[in-house]
Nucleic acid binder design. Structure first.
Length: 341
DNA sequence: TGTGCGGTAAACATCT
DNA sequence: TAGATGTTTACCGCAC
């Protein structure tokens, strides 16, 4: 069993409604008073699907989210969450994830991702992410293509017209600047493209909103459905459940199947070791302006446990994660977090 | 209904 | 010369 913790600023501008994304795996629900939420997160999927659940499990992953490490980030343009997630596919395999097969373990990842959905991100966002994900923060158009293909398999099989759209966006959008290559180092065709610094916050905002909109539109976020499924001893997706306390884990039902005969985590066999168990009684960060998230690993699933008195729901957590990353990327984490630092 | 935005297609020019 | 790259225009659908 592994445990991951990370502290996040609770009052970001994103902490409001919710966004979506990898969130597929963490279907949101409003927390009951003094409740602990548990979310099982399949973690066996490998790239690119793993990014759906990668936040806590990628090595060094949360560093960009942890305010304590902000100062370690010399590069304020860091979008290392792109690296942490591996990609932003979370929004893509929605249909796949929501229709988990009988036995997740027995289904090849490739099959799960056989027909990825079109990413909700605009081409501007895709280009932005691609460029930001590059070490030099500048890329030739060809590398932008490659990044998109690598991170969004949808485009691997999509007709070539999207490349035209990428070029169209690069040329048309004021958010991107063309940098003429030094002839001395001219290798290959074309110029390098970079993100126009003054438009970067706007791009981040668009990216965040895309995240948000997609999530709020997701049926996965329908708490009622989840609760009803729970009442039936079922878990709609094997992803989210809401419980009153941790005792539930050791005492409640064995896993049951969803109407789709999805295989769920056998809860009765889960042993959660709260490394810092007292945290659940009183969050030592309660007055610090941060909340602490507890991640547990059990077999192929991960569990996220929130303090019961937290006013955050899972969507908010998701939002916070993205937001914290985006804020840091923008170099304005402290400002957006309300100066709790 | 008008407007803005994003996606797509196409034509054309330029560059390697 | 071919293919990649860059620019521009036009059209469509959607959301507000």
């Amino acid at each position: 069993m592994e445990k991951y913790t990370q502290a996040l600023p609770p009052h970001s501008p994103l902490h409001s409604p919710q966004s979506d994304s990898e969130a597929l795996s963490r279907s949101p629900s409003r927390p009951q008073p003094a409740a602990v939420q548990l979310v099982s997160l399949p973690s066996t999927l490998t790239t690119p699907a793993s990014c759906l659940y990668s936040a806590p499990q990628v090595s060094g992953g949360p560093h960009c989210l942890n305010p304590s490490t902000v100062s370690d980030q010399d590069d304020l343009t860091c979008l290392s969450w792109l690296h942490q997630r591996g990609n932003l596919l979370p929004l893509q395999p929605l249909t796949k994830i929501t229709t988990l097969p009988q036995t997740l373990d027995s289904i090849p990842v490739q099959q799960l991702l056989s027909s990825p959905a079109k990413p909700p991100y605009s081409f501007s966002s895709l280009i932005f992410m691609a460029i930001e994900d590059s070490p030099e923060k500048r890329l030739p158009v060809k590398s932008i293509y490659q990044w998109i293909v690598d991170n969004f398999p949808y485009y691997k099989e999509a007709p070539g017209g999207w490349r035209n759209s990428v070029r169209h966006n690069l040329s048309l959008s004021k958010s991107f600047q063309r940098i003429h290559r030094d002839k001395s180092q001219s290798v290959g065709k074309g110029s390098l493209w970079r993100v126009c610094p003054e438009h970067r916050p706007a791009l981040l905002e668009v990216l965040r909103k895309t995240h948000y909109c997609h999530r709020t539109n997701s049926s996965l976020l329908n708490k009622r459905v989840l609760l009803e499924a729970a009442d039936d001893g079922q878990n709609t997706l094997g992803e989210t459940m809401e419980i009153s306390d941790l005792d539930f884990l050791s005492s409640n039902l064995p896993c049951s199947l969803t109407p789709d005969h999805e295989e769920l985590v056998p809860l009765e066999s889960v042993e959660l070791t709260e490394v810092a168990g007292e945290d659940l009684e009183k969050d030592p960060l309660a007055d610090s302006g941060y909340i602490e998230l507890h991640y547990y690993q059990y077999q192929q699933y991960q569990y996220l446990v929130l303090p019961g008195d937290s006013e955050l729901d899972l969507e908010s957590v998701e939002i916070l994660q993205l937001d914290a990353e985006a804020q840091e990327a923008a170099g304005s984490l402290l400002d957006l977090a309300g100066g709790n630092h």
